[in-house]
Design a protein around this nucleic acid. Structure first.
Length: 189
DNA sequence: CTTAGGATCGCCT
DNA sequence: GGCGATCCTAAGC
């Protein structure tokens, strides 16, 4: 049941393990989405994480049950989508940074204001805009509409590297990508 | 190709 | 009152 609806992921595992498992998973929001090709892990004892300083109004969803969404506004402009993991109350999550657009291309193009497929979901802010993710989905469970998660048909090859756009714990290799993808927000090295 | 700056607002100190 | 888990555009090499 929920096992299948949640792509068979072990949501209680460490956030970097969940972030790795999510590569290659198909994510749909109201039928719009594609294969996840880039993620980043954040955890409670992680200076770069929103949860590092404990529960607050903004990050409360991170301390809720796993397999739920944590959505926040970045720079007053862009929504960003995270999946909560570990046991409830822990404060860990995975930022969904990019995916390969596959379903609902026309709607993505309208929402993003471009026809360029490379610019639809190649970054956390772009992805949220293309999929119509806003604060309204904060705390929403991932095993129910509008979310759909589908496990990859075959094992995928994953690459890793340092996370992007942070000022603390910058060397932690907690950014993961689908090997060879053309939809990363930035190259791996 | 790389870098710099502006947009814009909710949250936290 | 300061500062982003970002994005876009313009200018410089």
């Amino acid at each position: 049941m929920t096992e299948q609806q949640l792509a068979g992921i072990d949501w209680l595992a460490d956030s970097h393990q969940v972030a790795r498992q999510l590569i290659g998973v198909t994510l749909l929001v109201n039928g719009v989405g594609g294969r996840i090709v880039e993620t980043e892990a954040y955890d409670r004892d992680d200076p770069a994480s929103h949860s590092f300083t404990g529960p607050s109004q903004r990050n409360l969803a991170m301390f809720g049950p796993p397999a739920h969404a944590y959505v926040y506004l970045s720079h007053g402009i862009h929504w960003c989508l995270n999946f909560v993991c570990r046991e409830a109350g822990h404060g860990a999550g995975v930022l969904i940074r990019a995916l390969a657009p596959e379903q609902g291309l026309a709607q993505m193009m309208t929402r993003r204001g471009t026809q360029d497929v490379r610019k639809l979901c190649s970054g956390p802010g772009k992805l949220a805009q293309a999929l119509g993710v806003t604060r309204a989905l904060n705390n929403a469970p991932l095993d129910a509409p509008p979310f759909v998660l589908l496990a990859p048909a075959e094992p995928v090859e994953v690459v890793a590297g340092p996370r992007i756009g942070i000022s603390k714990a910058v060397e932690m290799p907690w950014r993961f990508g689908l090997a060879g993808s053309t939809n990363w927000s930035r190259p791996f090295r």
